[in-house]
């Protein structure tokens, strides 16, 4: 076990959340099973908005023909698959801690796609990458209950590792749920909902704030674009919830009523929290600093 992993969520915690089974997630996610906030343009449906989200990160990280991409927390592989098929990337590597996700990506069997069941801290690339993306993984990089300093240190190790894996001028595009900078974590933890999310939805994980992210990145990356698309996540979560309710009987048969009820509550309340700004959805593009 790496030193870094000790301050983030363990593989067991990640697997508890994401290994519920492909069939279960397929009930409410889009066909690529992208389990993170979409990017809506106008009346886009979820499928189009998930593609637009992936394209935004491919654009910001500079993925193009002959470029090498690393995707940290690759989920079911939608982003790396699109990098190879739509952008003609030379090579795309995905890292995940979920065995179910890794098996799915491996089954795509594309010569320029690689998936590894590996922590980013342990990844040793054979050659530098030109681009790194990480969508919906940052939420798991710091465990709950850490002090701000320890959390920022964990994030700093992530950015330092990314910079070390990138060629000069390389770009990094991340997406994460975040709290407002002035958020009162102790008060939140004391609420029923705070305890519910910590114990039943995302065990062992905590969320960053934008200042923590920028502070942690500063020695190795400069920010290029920062977006807070919280309204997009409210919309995404409401679509997932609607779909999960439509397929409720099948969902209960697959994972049990308690898990379905938990996700229903999580989607409902997080959508409202994104509505009012108690939660943010950050998309931040960075460029590796030259000095």
């Amino acid at each position: 076990m790496s030193a870094v992993r000790k301050v983030g969520a363990t593989p067991q915690a990640i697997q508890a959340h994401y290994d519920a089974g492909d069939a279960f997630f397929a009930l409410f996610l889009d066909p690529t099973r992208t389990y993170s906030c979409a990017l809506f343009n106008g009346d886009d449906d979820l499928d189009a908005a998930q593609r637009a989200k992936i394209d935004w990160h491919l654009d910001q990280s500079g993925v193009a023909a002959d470029k090498r991409l690393l995707d940290i927390g690759c989920g079911w592989g939608a982003l790396i698959e699109r990098a190879v098929w739509a952008r003609d990337a030379a090579h795309a590597t995905g890292l995940t801690l979920s065995a179910a996700q890794a098996a799915h990506v491996a089954s795509m069997g594309h010569a320029r796609l690689e998936v590894r069941l590996e922590d980013w801290a342990d990844h040793a690339p054979s050659a530098p990458y030109d681009a790194i993306t990480s969508v919906g993984a940052f939420e798991h990089f710091a465990a709950a209950g850490l002090s701000r300093d320890v959390r920022v240190d964990a994030y700093r190790r992530f950015f330092t590792k990314c910079a070390a894996m990138l060629a000069p001028g390389g770009r990094l595009s991340i997406q994460t749920i975040a709290y407002p900078a002035a958020f009162d974590r102790a008060a939140y933890d004391a609420t029923d909902y705070g305890a519910f999310v910590r114990e039943r939805i995302f065990p062992e994980s905590d969320l960053p704030t934008l200042p923590e992210i920028l502070e942690a990145a500063d020695s190795v990356f400069e920010p290029v674009i920062i977006r807070n698309d919280r309204r997009h996540y409210a919309r995404t979560a409401r679509i997932w919830r609607r779909r999960l309710r439509e397929r409720r009987d099948e969902a209960v048969a697959l994972v049990g009523q308690r898990r379905v009820d938990d996700l229903d509550r999580y989607f409902r309340t997080s959508a409202g929290a994104f509505d009012i700004g108690t939660l943010q959805l950050l998309r931040v593009a960075f460029q590796k600093r030259r000095a």
Partner: peptide, 11 residues
């Protein structure tokens, strides 16, 4: 009423 409880009420 804490904001998250207001959100649950809206839900």
């Amino acid at each position: 009423l804490p904001s998250l409880e207001a959100v649950e009420l809206a839900g």
